[in-house]
Design a protein around this nucleic acid. Structure first.
Length: 206
DNA sequence: GTCCGGATTACCT
DNA sequence: GGTAATCCGGACT
């Protein structure tokens, strides 16, 4: 059953990053005791999206995006924060799905410690930088398999799990933090409507 | 070698 | 709601 879910997600990651991003909503991200349900993602792709890190071709930083789909692309930004992406492709073109927000399921105590003891559950994972801090994701995870069969056994590394609960309604809007003229008009931010309260800002109307 | 801006967050008002 | 903090990758000289 899980194998089917992995196979169909991998197929989407190889074919259509928009559909893959939507399909990732509801999946869980796990490491050790920590589990969370993905509620918000964004799609990035070449060649028509100037905000995609692969837009100008392969570099040392973005090389994972030019490899097989389903691997972690982790990069550092704003002098503080790590961002977690899943590598993807349109046929022949590099693409990525940014994991922007998640709803904590288990291991909240560990997340809280990693997040410097922050009190509110909402603040644990309601942003891409927060997710990486909570799960202790850094450049060390760049290039690690997340979904494929070659990922490490359960708990030993960051990995994704199918939810078994399909997302019913998806809220679509423009992506966050994109400069004007660089793809800011593309409606490639996707939020699980039902779990919109766990999304990063700006949040969808309830 | 230098410069610029960024797929953000936390904290202050 | 506004903005300082902070450092790296990529572009360009």
């Amino acid at each position: 059953m899980d194998q089917d879910a992995f196979a169909s997600l991998n197929q989407l990651l190889e074919q259509d990053v928009i559909l893959a991003a939507k399909a990732l909503l509801g999946w869980q991200i796990g490491w050790g005791e920590m589990r969370a349900q993905i509620v918000e993602v964004e799609a990035y792709r070449t060649p028509d999206d100037r905000a995609c890190h692969a837009h100008r071709g392969q570099t040392k930083r973005n090389r994972v995006l030019f490899g097989p789909p389903g691997f972690a692309y982790v990069y550092f930004t704003y002098g503080h924060h790590w961002m977690l992406n899943v590598s993807a492709h349109e046929p022949g073109n590099a693409a990525a799905v940014l994991i922007r927000a998640a709803k904590p399921i288990s291991g909240l105590d560990e997340m809280r410690v990693n997040r410097n003891g922050i009190r509110s559950d909402f603040e644990l994972l309601s942003g891409p930088g927060k997710i990486c801090q909570a799960f202790q994701i850094t450049g060390a995870q760049d290039g690690m398999p997340l979904i494929g069969e070659d990922r490490l056994p359960g708990g030993e590394s960051l990995q994704f799990f199918p939810s078994g609960h399909p997302v019913k309604a998806i809220y679509e809007t423009v992506r966050v933090g994109i400069a004007q003229g660089k793809g800011d008009e593309l409606p490639w931010r996707f939020i699980d409507q039902k779990e919109g309260a766990w999304a990063s800002r700006p949040r969808p109307p309830r």
